[in-house]
Amino acid sequence: MSWLKGMYNGFNEFFLTVVDRRELIQMAFIEHLWLSFVSISIACLISLPLGIWIARAKRFAEPMIGVTAVLQTIPSLALFGFLVPLIGIGTNTALIALTIYALLPIVRNTYTGISRVSPAMIEAASAMGMTSRQRLFKVEFPLAIPFIMAGIRTATVLTVGVATLATFVGAGGLGDVIYRGLQSYKPYLILAGAIPVAVLANMFDFILKHLEKKSTPKGMRIK
């Protein structure tokens, strides 16, 4: 029964650590949430119009998706590192890095979602006398929503994870807690930072998945 006792001790110590550092963890959690939320919002503001635009001006699509893909291949830690000499440390640096990271999934899914609307729909819409704008908002965009939402979901889960690195540019977040744990050899403190990150990522995933289903037009859920 010693393993049970060990586990009990482990939980106990973890719990004590959380209670002891609750203010730090609370603040870090809120910072983390804020960093993720703001960077995803900015990424949406940039990516949605960009994705729509390249879906219409196809010759720009490859280069644009290429650029966002290259940005995403930069290791996340290195991206934060690159930005420090340029912008310095602080929240803005973290937000910029996180936004850059979130661009690709949203741009690509918006582009794909709009491009795969069947040519018959486009032809019907045009032939009925819709202007290109009306076609976009009444037909192409609604039909692409499930794809776009999936892109935003991927980007969000990614961002919540990467936001742990914000601590290295002094922007706070749950990375702070993990980093302190690492520095002071306190595994329970590391867990106290890592577990909320995992919970947060899963929570976002769950909420957005639900939203994705809800936002899929009713007529398209019939199969």
Partner: peptide, 28 residues
């Protein structure tokens, strides 16, 4: 745009908009 609104068009692939009800499709 005016011209197309004054001409009805039916295609082989039917091309109804799946996210709209039948009434909404006709009402476009």
């Amino acid at each position: 745009v005016e011209l197309r609104r004054s001409i009805g068009y039916v295609i082989q692939q039917i091309g109804l908009f799946p996210h709209m009800t039948i009434a909404e499709n006709i009402a476009v």
